[in-house]
Nucleic acid binder design. Structure first.
Lengths: 246, 246
DNA sequence: AAAACAAACATTGTATACAGTAGAGGAACA
DNA sequence: TGTTCCTCTACTGTATACAATGTTTGTTTT
């Protein structure tokens, strides 16, 4: 299996030499957000250990934490992999995110500080610029930055970390289910409108707007029922045969 | 420091001999729920290892998972402890739980299966019986069971696990902030009323009811501002002195 | 007696060794 | 050709050793 994503990972952050496992967690999170680490990617412990120059103990701790975040999945005696949620879970992730991020928008609405206003405005400006210039990677990065900033600034920290997790999981399912030739999830002036409502609008209106934004995002994905549960018997024409599904 | 809670822990579950770390996680979770493991309790790795007959490796993994769940806190090179959230975080936990459990009530309202109806009714019956008999421990256990069952049965699994976590954290803060002589958080027929609304009522009414129930629970706690930020200068009567706070 | 220092102890952080399991490849067989 | 079995390799699960850090205790100093 091709494992040259390792180069991409090591390219990040200037070796801040933190607790070791925190560094690995951060790097993998970042790589997942920017879709350099696609769902299903194998993450062998020794490989990661070599990349970051630590032993399996440290890698193991990092993986355990990422499993808790639902970023990766681990089955006994098998290599850890980047999670690949099915369609049902994808819908659940979006529903949960609408609930949480809608509430955060509601909490923030009409209460933005000057700093927050400016920061959001600058991110959104940069996003629109990147879009006009056709710089897709940059645009996605800015789009993520908007939501991550809201999570960071949530007055309720508990909801804030929940949203941080959900944003990560959303990145994964977008990588999984984005339509082939789509304009990778760009929703024209949604973020600008959102900012307007966060500045002035009533709280419930900001909430509704946020939920609508996320629903629009979800609608851009290809979430038609997959070909799981293939009934061999029915396909092969055995009339009363026991249905064996894969 | 007194560490004889170890006996209580080992008393549980008939050594199901699971993955090892899963067993530790389950036991500690259970002990926290039933308040046998009060906030701030020290959890040295070797001690846990001896109790469960495993080495530090697997204890370590269990602790890492519990840290991710916000059940315990770990500072570098110091023993892990059961978390002890401050008042601000406590309020945030309740707010988050109102949001999530309210939504789950909403999703469930009017859609309960026969099995779910019966299960909930039987738990609530048992709870009221325990209350009449003055069996406080049993009553708390049943009360928890109601909410845990709702988390289990959440149609949205993502929200379900979120609620499971929040219930655990709620147990911790109740242990921390319950008023001295209080009738440990009993809200007369709240659960029975709730069940009624889950069976018939409109979804938004069930949601509002759930949120009110949780607010009532929070109101039973003693969440007055603690004596943090003690301003020594003002207490000691130094008029213009630099305020040194502990 | 209060404060500062130092040594002994308790506990965590990391690496490594060994055992056990899953999966890939190839040989034997029908 | 296709199937079964086996071995070999890659990987994870657990225990343990050693280093590094925090904490406590006792002793000295003022």
């Amino acid at each position: 299996m091709n494992e040259d994503w390792t180069k991409h990972i090591a390219a990040d952050l200037p070796a801040t030499a933190r607790n070791g496992d925190q560094q690995i967690v951060d790097m993998i999170r970042q790589a997942v957000l920017t879709q350099r680490l696609p769902p299903g990617t194998r993450l062998p412990e020794v490989t990661l250990g070599n990349i970051f120059g630590v032993s399996r103990s440290v890698v193991r701790k990092a993986l355990t934490r990422l499993v808790a975040d639902h970023i990766i999945v681990q089955h006994p005696n098998q290599v850890a992999r980047i999670a690949a949620p099915d369609i049902v879970e994808t819908r659940e992730i979006f529903a949960a995110r609408r609930l949480v991020e809608g509430e955060i928008a509601s909490l923030l609405a009409g209460k933005l500080t000057q700093t927050q206003r400016q920061k959001l405005a600058s991110i959104i400006d940069e996003e629109q610029l990147a879009h006009r210039q056709g710089n897709e990677a940059k645009r996605v990065e800015c789009s993520l930055a908007v939501h991550r900033y809201l999570a960071d600034q949530s007055p309720n920290r508990v909801l804030g970390v929940m949203l941080t997790d959900l944003i990560l999981r959303t990145s994964i399912v977008i990588a999984l289910y984005k339509r082939a030739g789509m304009q990778a999830c760009y929703l024209d002036h949604d973020h600008a409108n959102l900012l307007q409502l966060l500045e002035n609008g009533p709280a419930d209106e900001a909430c509704r707007r946020m939920r609508a934004h996320l629903s629009a995002l979800e609608a851009l994905l290809d979430l038609r029922a997959q070909e799981t549960h293939i009934d061999l018997a029915s396909i092969l024409g055995v009339p009363g045969g026991a249905s064996a599904s894969i």
